[in-house]
Design a protein around this nucleic acid. Structure first.
Length: 558
RNA sequence: UGGGGCGUAGCCAAGCGGUAAGGCACUGGUUUUUGGUACCAGCAAUCCCAGGUUCGAAUCCUGGCGCCCCAGCCA
């Protein structure tokens, strides 16, 4: 990252890491990012990715990519593939350490046997329903399972037979023997192994009939990998005593420290995997990488850059306080990146025909226009100009408020990078709609200001004969409510996508899929990585330019 | 009502007993062939509340209040 100011990145987790490094508790830091491959990664995961990989990067340590794949019912290979791609796209590298919790199924099984031998785990025959009853409630203690005092030998035998596939799903589980009266419900003899017949695990195939649970798996996986700091979100805070219990009960390589931080909430979207899955499965969006989705893949397709997302994650900080971040912060990050690095182009989203009556018929010119007004190194491209042009319908008004500084009847305006024109006549169709503007140009105003008068407005344009028509997808927030809850689908924004037929300058016809631009005066756009093709240009609006005119106009423009 | 957390401007967030950083947003202004950008200036905080300790408290203590999480054979 270009930003080497680490003090700016400081947060309570980094302080702990620094202290542990300074005290010699650890010679090097080792973190991990542990996604479950049951959905696409979203911007909330990006926060965790940037935290874990960022710490490894800045303190000269390592970060593993580890798939938490203990539930074969919900997980699949496509999610593994996409997660890998997304983390890499964000700019992080796990070298040879692409790992799976399922890599440790053998060791995990042996740890479970060890736990039984130490008298700290037992096979329980209660049904799921009964288990729930025995667990008690938030305010009442649970009761011991009638199977809690089975002999070690019997537990060993039963567990071996669970593994051998002798019992059907749900018939028995292996439980840790901790304390059914604990005020922390997670400690009331949690299940650590369950039976799962007939599912094919994406990594281990049909090798196992029993699968370990998260609490048992996660701490031991961390330990097996020599993780020093195990960072997770706040809802796992209650699980930390369990995390520690397993590592204390067993002889393990090391005892990592679990540290919890607040998960990200973003305005006008949802970030729970359940809801995102529902949006996709319910057809409310087109796919996991629909540009309206807060997924990494969606943001990427929308036009966000890895740098913008990393900056965002740095800007929002890491704390334990629940928060909901304003959307403008994310938008500000991509504007900032694309303002500096996005080549400028001219595109008219809502075209209105302009005929320059005093421009010679059949004549045309080609201007060399800079790709970036402040950055000559970004080069130039040719832009054709001739007698008929398209301008933005919103850039003309017959009767305009005082502060409107674009084209009005009888008024003058600068065509960006070209001449000053005057509107002489407004042509309307049968419905009274403006269909065409007849204008005249001042040939002395190319590259210089006219004498004796000040032209205050500048508008963009595209040659009508050379312009290329393109599909432009205008995206808006996915939800109308800042925090969609309850009947959250009701808050879906019906205008989250508007498709318009635009006319763009010829250079845009050759855009590569995924290429990003600033359409001058309009916003930042990205050639759709799936649908854009030569001959059929498709652009997604990443974010509009900041617009101070709309505020003035809303007040009447006077 | 049990347990675990959190509470500093509109939003995010520094702070770690010495008198409230920064960013975003917002408001002015300058520059500008993008009503963009950049630059300058400004606004904005009962530090959840109430007591206490201290020369001194956002920081320590006590008691409240508010919000979030936990009763999957999910993670």
């Amino acid at each position: 990252m270009s930003d080497s100011d680490t003090s700016k990145k400081s947060n309570f987790i980094r302080q702990i890491v620094e202290a542990d490094l300074a005290s010699g508790k650890y010679a090097a830091v080792h973190t991990r990012f542990p996604p479950e491959p049951n959905g696409y990664l979203h911007i909330g995961h990006a926060k965790s990715i940037c935290l874990n990989f960022g710490i490894a990067e800045d303190y000269d340590g390592q970060c593993n990519l580890r798939f938490d794949d203990t539930n074969p019912h919900k997980e699949n290979l496509e999610f593994v593939r996409v997660i890998e791609e997304d983390v890499r796209w964000l700019g992080y590298d796990w070298e040879e350490r692409m790992l799976f919790a399922s890599d440790y199924f053998g060791q995990l099984h042996d740890f479970a046997v060890d736990l039984i031998q130490r008298g700290k785990a037992y096979v329980c025959d209660l049904t799921a329903e009964e288990t729930r009853t025995y667990r008690g409630t938030l305010t009442e203690p649970g009761r011991d399972s009638p199977y809690r005092e089975r002999s070690i030998d019997e537990n060993l035998d039963l567990f071996a037979r669970m593994r051998a596939g002798e019992f059907p799903d749900g018939a028995r589980v292996l439980r840790a023997k901790i304390n059914m009266a604990s005020p922390n419900i997670n400690l009331r003899d949690p299940t650590i192994y369950r039976i799962r017949h007939g599912v094919v695990h994406h990594q281990t195939g049909d090798e196992w009939r029993i699968y370990p649970m998260y609490d048992f798996t996660h701490c031991l996986s961390d330990s097996i990998e020599g993780i020093t700091h195990s960072l997770c979100t706040l809802e796992f805070e209650d699980h930390r005593p369990l995390y520690d219990w397993f590592l204390d009960a067993l002889e393990t390589r090391c005892h990592p420290q679990q540290i919890e931080f607040a998960r990200l909430n973003l305005e006008y979207t949802v970030l729970s995997k359940r809801k995102l899955t529902e949006l996709v499965d319910g057809g409310h969006v087109d796919s996991w990488d629909d540009p309206r989705m807060p997924t990494i893949a969606g943001l990427r397709r929308r036009g966000y850059t890895p740098v913008s997302i990393r900056n965002f994650c740095e800007r929002i900080g890491v704390t334990k306080a629940d928060s909901r971040v304003e959307l403008q912060i994310l938008e500000g990050c991509i504007r900032e990146d694309l303002e500096a690095h996005g080549p400028r182009r001219l595109a008219v989203l809502d075209p209105l025909k302009v005929v320059i009556t005093n421009y010679p018929e059949g004549h045309e010119e080609e201007f060399e226009v800079p790709n970036h007004p402040q950055e000559p190194s970004m080069g130039e491209r040719p832009v054709p100009f001739d007698r008929e042009l398209w301008i933005e319908r919103g850039d003309f008004m017959e009767e305009a408020p005082r502060k409107f500084k674009r084209l009005v009847t009888g008024g003058e305006v600068r065509l960006r990078n070209a001449y000053v024109i005057r509107c002489d006549e407004v042509i309307k169709d049968a419905d009274g709609e403006i269909s065409e503007l007849r204008c005249s140009y001042d040939p002395e105003t190319l590259g210089r200001n006219p004498e004796g008068r000040k032209i205050k407005g500048v508008i963009h344009w595209v040659s009508a004969t050379h312009g290329v028509s393109a599909e432009v997808r205008l995206y808006d927030r996915l939800f109308t409510a800042p925090n969609p809850e309850g009947d959250w689908l009701e808050a879906l924004n019906p205008e989250s996508l508007t498709i318009v037929k635009a006319v763009v300058e010829p250079a845009l016809a050759n855009a590569e899929p995924g290429e990003r631009f600033q359409f001058e005066r309009t916003g930042y756009f990205c050639a759709d990585r799936h649908d854009h093709a030569p001959g059929r240009p498709v652009f997604n609006r990443t974010v509009a330019l900041r617009d101070s005119w709309s505020k003035i106009a809303a007040k009447g423009g006077n």
